[in-house]
């Protein structure tokens, strides 16, 4: 199967949107070639601005532009957008509720060889704590494109999370993407695997393998981590009685936390979290890193087996 990185879909979607929205302005912080905002920059050089290696100012400029009615996407790696510029996002975008879109690429451990300094597994946790922030974590190129178009329309802050690694497509090209709406990708009765980002493909692979062992696993794709589709998560909890979450993020503060917080209050069922287990990564090929830190179909399947045996 052909694979495409969500960052590539991001750059292409921005260029596509540029033709439709004359008010679209894209900013980067000296990483345009990597974040793929370079695709937009090439098509619309007058509406692309490079802030240089200055992420705090990048976020502030984006805020200022948005007050004057521009549709703004500001990009850097997740580490430097959500991490370094957290307080600027909180105070200059979140608190004034400005419709700025933070396009953060190179999220998660699959950054690979650059190592732990660049592998951001904390961004979802950071962004979740900002009131009014929408967090989109697309699973494939189809969803990444749809997320860009939906974010551009939303008149409030959005954090979009993209990956460096080429990933398989899990959604149909014409599927109906709605912010805040979970996507059931597979039905099942014993357990629901609630996955986000590149872990959705791993969840589907795990579910297919588990079927041969007689375990019926549903798969729910959560592309919007905030606001969480509470209805879909609670329905999954009620239907299968046990949940396994899967994300390319620290198990603290991400999707697993969001699901556990919700069900523990409203419908307590066991929640087992697959994710980076509160550790820093190492340098290495992306796929090897995903396996090393338990972000693969094998680990999801093992977690499901343990969960349904309980």
């Amino acid at each position: 199967m052909a694979t495409i990185a969500t960052r590539d879909a991001y750059g292409a979607a921005l260029a596509e949107l540029g033709a439709i929205d004359p008010k679209l302005v894209v900013l980067d912080a000296d990483l345009a070639a990597a974040t793929k905002t370079s695709v937009f920059a090439k098509a619309y050089p007058d509406r692309f601005f490079d802030a240089g290696i200055a992420e705090a100012n990048l976020v502030g400029i984006a805020a200022g532009l948005s007050t004057a009615g521009y549709t703004v996407f500001a990009s850097s790696f997740a580490m430097f957008a959500a991490g370094r510029a957290f307080e600027q996002i909180r105070n200059s975008i979140g608190y004034p509720a400005l419709p700025v879109n933070i396009g953060a690429t190179h999220a998660g451990i699959s950054v690979g060889e650059d190592g732990a300094s660049h592998q951001c597994c904390e961004d979802i946790a950071l962004m979740r704590t900002i009131p009014g922030m929408t967090i989109l974590n697309p699973a494939d190129d189809v969803e990444a494109r749809a997320a860009v178009f939906a974010a551009a329309k939303l008149q409030s802050p959005v954090y979009l999370r993209f990956g460096r690694l080429a990933v398989p497509r899990v959604n149909a090209e014409d599927y109906d993407f709605q912010i805040g709406k979970a996507v059931p990708l597979r039905a099942g009765t014993d357990v629901t695997i609630i996955a986000t980002g590149l872990m959705v493909a791993a969840a589907l692979e795990a579910a297919a393998n588990l079927e041969s062992e007689g375990i019926s696993a549903a798969v729910l794709n959560i592309h919007t981590i905030k606001p969480l589709d509470e209805e879909a998560v609670l329905a999954a909890a009620a239907q299968t009685g046990v949940l396994v979450t899967a994300e390319e993020h620290n198990i603290i503060g991400g999707l697993g936390s969001a699901v556990a917080e919700l069900v523990s209050e409203k419908s307590p069922v066991p929640v087992h979290r697959v994710g980076v287990r509160d550790t820093f990564g190492r340098s290495g090929p992306a796929l090897e890193m995903l396996r090393r830190y338990g972000l693969d179909a094998k680990t999801i399947a093992e977690t499901v087996r343990a969960a349904v045996r309980r």
Binding site: V25, A56, V59, A63, G64, S66, Y70, S92
Partner: peptide
């Protein structure tokens, strides 16, 4: 512009000035 955290207002002002130029 909402401000209070020092150093951030000037960046927003720069963004506004850029908006006028665009």
């Amino acid at each position: 512009m909402s401000t209070g955290s020092l150093g951030q207002g000037i960046s927003a002002a720069v963004g506004m000035a850029l908006a006028a130029k665009i």
